[in-house]
Design a protein around this nucleic acid. Sequence first.
DNA 1: AAATTTACTGTACCGGCGGTATGGTTTTCA
DNA 2: TGAAAACCATACCGCCGGTACAGTAAATTT
Lengths: 219, 219
Amino acid sequence: MRKGAETRERILEIAEASVLAKGFGATSIEEVIAEAGITKSGFFYHFKDKNELARALMLRYVEENDRIFDDVFRRGRQLSDDPLQSFLITLKLLAELMGDLPNGHPGCLIATFTYQERLFDRNVRDIASDAVRSWNGRFRDALNEIATVYPARKGMDLDDVAIMFSCVIDGGIIMSRGLGDPRVLERQILAFRSIVQLLFAPAAPDIILPPAPTAIAAE
Amino acid sequence: MRKGAETRERILEIAEASVLAKGFGATSIEEVIAEAGITKSGFFYHFKDKNELARALMLRYVEENDRIFDDVFRRGRQLSDDPLQSFLITLKLLAELMGDLPNGHPGCLIATFTYQERLFDRNVRDIASDAVRSWNGRFRDALNEIATVYPARKGMDLDDVAIMFSCVIDGGIIMSRGLGDPRVLERQILAFRSIVQLLFAPAAPDIILPPAPTAIAAE
DNA sequence: AAATTTACTGTACCGGCGGTATGGTTTTCA
DNA sequence: TGAAAACCATACCGCCGGTACAGTAAATTT
């Protein structure tokens, strides 16, 4: 019912924070239930074992990220008809979103899980794999659409560029943490944005491209 | 003496593989000693607790990576006097190195540790942090040296480009695993290489730059 | 209002693991 | 040959993941 879903959500929230801080293996159910204010029986009422918790965490993370990407891509398209401008706006929005997080990005569950893959069954791994493929597909589609209007530089495979954006995000999160500077991620996304400009603007990108839109509030 | 160092090394080897596959928290000492063919007492003779194992793993990883970077940068400089060419060669060598790994890159310990930072003391975190800063510094120095000869594109901070390379490597490892395709990492490094070309070659990079050296055996 | 389902609590237990302690034994090297 | 190094054997503690089962208060349905 209502209350059950709330408790379940609270468990997931607490567990996700713990997984991102200590890893899945070191995340103790006892700590989670202590923080959630429930008993062990209550936990196992919602999740039959730890692996189902992992599955639920992954599903939740993927869905939320899908929503975020839906949103920034939709707003990017709303604000320009030009596919290049549209994508550049989307990247700017994403960068703002990351920069506005008070304590930096909390971490990418996909990244943690791929570094602990032996802990999860094929089901969970497939969810993660499909999600990554889907997100890369979005970026690749956006780039391909741009390429129909602007000629891309030779020697650059757009599939690789699309994947590189995922690399920059996941790598940026790691670097932000490792260097103790939450703004690294935002800067990396903006740097990638500059590269996209460079890729599709042959001669002098700063001249033929209008300035990026400013003061667009990120959700 | 001699034999002690060998056993210690074997422990580290096994532990590293386990940490990269399951995470540090889920790496059980019992499994490690079983695989190493020693007893628990033997393990605690070499490492007084699990945290010291973490410290040793991190130190070992950082030193080995330092050696690798020393090597590819040295060989890059040997093969060309031009800083741009030299760096492009280094990147190619690095890409070949990654591509030649039979089962893909085993994983970046820094990445795992930053996603499990609550498990380690400040000492270990500082080692990781300093290593990342040092590696980023290498890339930044290389880029700055290039910029003294070739004018860089405006709007791109070379510090960010340097950090982006670290992002591409760590992100590339995650993507390789997540997508189940070991060659993603190699392709990402080569894609970054193309971007460096683009960054420093204003008009037509494929023309003014000689082809990358081929058939340079990676160690 | 009664019956049923939902959402838990309480208690008890198992086996595995990290870690400690302590006392021995073999191997290596000076 | 003697000391230090490199282990092995055994026993133990406490925490944790997980299971089992019995009970209960509240919400929802009938």
